[in-house]
Computed example of a mutant assay.
Amino acid sequence: MGTKLRFSTAFHPQTDGQSKRMIQTWEYMLRSCVLQLRDSWDTHLALMEFAYNNSYHSSIGMAPYQALYGRQCRTPICWNVVGDRKLEKVESIQEMTEKVNMIREKLKTAQDR
């Protein structure tokens, strides 16, 4: 795959950039989601993680989930796009889909900063 392992000390300026950028993106995304979701932001952390792991990242040219598993993630949240599944509790899935889309917008804004 062409990956190279680089060991470094904590806060080393030449190898800490990628971690720093990821933490900064998460910070912006969390801040904007907390402002919009108010008191329920902590119950949506799993959706934030889902949105982050299934969003396109220009540094790797794909979503982190796809890079790790070699395929796109398939969950009930994504099934409404395909339309080939019979789902129970469609309202809750639609609500989750709306929240994931909102979080993805916040993530895109955070990545563009």
Rank of each mutant, 00 (worst) to 15 (best):
N101F: 08
Q14E: 11
I103H: 02
S8V: 05
A51Y: 01
R38L: 14
V81F: 09
E27R: 15
F50M: 03
M22T: 09
C78D: 09
S55F: 01
L45M: 14
K89S: 15
K20G: 07
C33L: 07
F50I: 03
L107I: 00
S58W: 00
S59G: 06
M62L: 07
T75K: 14
F7W: 13
E27Y: 12
V81W: 06
R104E: 04
R71D: 01
K4E: 03
A63D: 01
R113H: 07
K86E: 15
E98H: 06
T9Q: 15
R6K: 14
M96H: 11
P76N: 10
Y56I: 00
I23D: 09
K106Y: 09
H44S: 07
R71C: 00
Q36S: 13
L45T: 10
K99N: 06
V90F: 10
W79S: 08
V100T: 02
Q66F: 00
T3R: 10
L5V: 13
N101S: 09
H12G: 07
T109N: 00
R38D: 15
S59F: 04
C78Q: 10
D16H: 15
S40Y: 07
L37Y: 11
L30K: 13
F50E: 01
A10F: 15
Q111V: 01
I23K: 15
L68A: 05
G61E: 08
T43Q: 10
W26R: 12
V100R: 03
P13C: 10
Y28M: 08
E105K: 04
T15E: 04
Y52I: 05
K4L: 01
Q111M: 07
L30Y: 12
T25C: 03
R85F: 08
F7A: 08
L47K: 11
S32D: 15
D16L: 12
K4H: 01
A63N: 02
C78Y: 09
S19D: 10
W26Q: 12
A51H: 01
C73M: 09
Y28R: 13
T9E: 14
D42Y: 06
Q72W: 04
N54D: 06
D16A: 14
K20M: 08
W79D: 05
M22D: 04
Q72D: 05
Y65C: 06
S55P: 01
R85P: 00
M1H: 05
V82N: 08
T75I: 14
T109Y: 00
N53G: 05
N80P: 00
I103S: 03
V81E: 09
V100C: 03
C78V: 06
N54W: 00
S92T: 14
K108Y: 04
P76K: 15
G61P: 10
T43W: 03
E88S: 12
Y69D: 00
Q18W: 13
Q18E: 13
K86F: 13
T97S: 12
H57E: 05
L5R: 13
E95H: 15
F11P: 02
M29H: 04
F7L: 12
S19G: 11
V82Y: 08
Y56G: 02
D84Y: 06
K106M: 12
Q94E: 13
H12K: 09
T75Y: 13
N80E: 03
Y56F: 15
L47Q: 11
D84H: 11
F50Q: 04
S59Y: 05
K4A: 01
I103W: 07
E98A: 07
H57Q: 13
G83E: 04
I77W: 10
T97M: 07
V34A: 15
S58D: 00
K99Q: 07
D42I: 03
D112P: 02
